[in-house]
Simulated scan of single mutants.
Amino acid sequence: MTPASTAARAVEVLSGLRLAVLTGAGLSTDSGIPDYRGPDSPPRTPMTYQQFVADPAFRRHYWARNHVGWAHVHRTLPNAGHRALTALEARGVVVGVITQNVDLLHEEAGTRNVIDLHGRYDRVICLSCATVISRTELAGRLDALNPGFAESIGRVADIEIAPDADAVIETTAHFTVADCDRCGGLLKPEIVYFGESVPKERVARAFALVDSADALLVAGSSLTVMSGLRFVRHAAKTGQPVVIVNRGATRGDPFATLKLDAGTSETLTELAETLPPLP
């Protein structure tokens, strides 16, 4: 089946409806950011919030990996899937995007109404005083504390990059972590870790976005974790059509009106070219 004929099935379900969109890591793979749970993804064991907070060795390892991975994610660009959703928003079809990604590629593509459900990779927060600084500012501090670190482990292009701006590095014992320069507290990326809850206000805004739409479109998410699956279950419970576009099975398949085992870039591009604009 061709991408066009696959997307045509989604057009039949979604035509004339205003869409809330939920996106996951599979949407960003065509931008060069591997996902965690795609059919070809290697097994990974993400660091938990509890490990990060309680164990200095885990924290050092995380920041060493992140310091290299950050440089890669900082250079990635939106792909055709991101641009298609921006076009659909401009034409009144998409009312907003809830993304589980932290890469900010929706914003860079020009989508205006974006809820970054799991946070964003470009900010860092102090767990003691709640001071927020940019990841760029922290990168300068980490460079100063760890001169030559990146060179000591090889080029970024040779290192596996994960969706939360981590990179796989075997030796991190010589890396020095930066603490908050205001109070000396622990710095953490302003993203939601495994074992950590999404802020209630953010979840409420996401549910409100789903309720403001006529249908829910899921793009590039396996819906393995409840933080995304709950919106699919909610839409199905309230009678909204749910269309899922993802390579491989998802946890939300039983709730879907239509499931397409297809790539997001091709399918969303076809939707953007086919779905009629709405007033």
Rank of each mutant, 00 (worst) to 15 (best):
I115L: 11
D116V: 07
D116M: 02
L117P: 00
L117K: 06
L117E: 00
G119M: 03
G119P: 00
R120V: 02
R120F: 00
Y121L: 15
D122E: 13
D122Q: 05
R123G: 01
V124L: 05
S128K: 15
C129R: 05
V132P: 00
I133F: 04
L138Y: 09
A139S: 12
G140Y: 04
G140D: 13
D143H: 11
A144M: 10
N146Q: 13
A150I: 14
E151Y: 01
S152C: 06
I153W: 02
I153T: 12
G154S: 01
G154C: 08
G154Q: 03
G154H: 03
R155N: 14
V156W: 05
A157Q: 14
A157P: 00
I161F: 00
D164K: 12
A167M: 03
V168N: 13
I169N: 01
I169E: 02
I169C: 08
H174F: 02
V177L: 07
A178E: 14
D179R: 09
D181G: 01
D181K: 12
C183V: 05
G185P: 01
K188T: 03
I191G: 03
Y193T: 00
Y193W: 15
F194K: 06
S197F: 12
S197L: 14
P199G: 10
P199T: 03
P199Q: 11
A204H: 09
A206K: 13
F207V: 09
F207T: 08
A208R: 14
D211E: 15
S212K: 08
S212R: 15
A213L: 04
A213G: 07
A213D: 05
A213V: 02
A215K: 07
L216C: 11
L217F: 07
S221T: 11
L223H: 07
S227H: 07
S227G: 06
L229T: 09
L229C: 10
L229R: 12
F231C: 07
V232W: 11
R233V: 13
H234L: 03
